[in-house]
């Protein structure tokens, strides 16, 4: 599979140094560069746009608090995505505790969709957290498995297994919900 890597920030070290000095313009440069990726991750992990935006905001606060400890030998995108994923895991954990009503609605509303893409998006929400994270980073963000392992602090073997099992579950979930209406893209997951 051809792997597309997240574009690295230009003048990364200089921008990070400015962040370390508390320059908010430097944070804005980082935001403009990574917002789409972070928001996408948040959306896939948490399900709702508002939660994703809250997660991005919290991730930037955590970046601000921890940027002085950033090791310049490390890759900044990996560092930032790790922060974002940890924020998502924290929010999911809190939500598990509260049993968020809105989230229940999302789960309840899981139903056959015209669009297979939407069906897949909702099916992803039902995956266990780590599995979901591995699948989203691999399939949606098209990251290499070793990078995913670094972000999630897992072994590459575990990432491979998680992605494999995620695909297996999603295949089952998509085949269970019959595609109706528009034939495009054709649902090849249904039996028969």
């Amino acid at each position: 599979m051809e792997v597309f890597l997240i574009r690295e920030l230009e003048n990364e070290h200089e921008i990070i140094r400015r962040c370390q000095q508390g320059d908010r313009r430097a944070y804005e440069i980082i935001y403009r560069h990574f917002a789409a990726v972070l928001l996408g991750l948040g959306r896939r992990m948490l399900g709702r746009q508002e939660d994703a935006e809250d997660a991005v905001q919290t991730a930037f606060l955590k970046l601000y608090r921890g940027v002085n400890q950033f090791q310049f030998s490390a890759k900044f995108s990996t560092y930032l995505l790790r922060i974002m994923m940890n924020v998502c895991f924290d929010l999911m954990q809190k939500r598990r505790g509260k049993k968020d009503r809105a989230f229940e609605e999302i789960e309840i509303s899981y139903a056959p969709h015209i669009d297979l893409r939407l069906q897949l998006e909702e099916a992803i929400n039902t995956l266990p957290e780590r599995m979901r994270a591995c699948f989203v980073l691999f399939a949606v963000e098209e990251m290499k498995q070793d990078e995913i392992a670094e972000i999630l602090n897992l072994s590459v073997g575990t990432v491979k297994a998680q992605v494999f099992h995620a695909k297996a579950r999603l295949r089952v979930l998509l085949s269970d919900s019959p595609s109706v209406g528009e034939p495009e893209p054709q649902n090849i997951f249904t039996n028969g």
């Binding site: 996408g40 746009q49 893409r117 998509l174 893209p185």
Partner: peptide, 16 residues
């Protein structure tokens, strides 16, 4: 799986 990955790759990017 190829279709699954193709679908996932083409997810709409949420707009901030």
């Amino acid at each position: 799986d190829t279709q699954l990955l193709a679908l996932a790759k083409n997810f709409e990017q949420p707009i901030a």
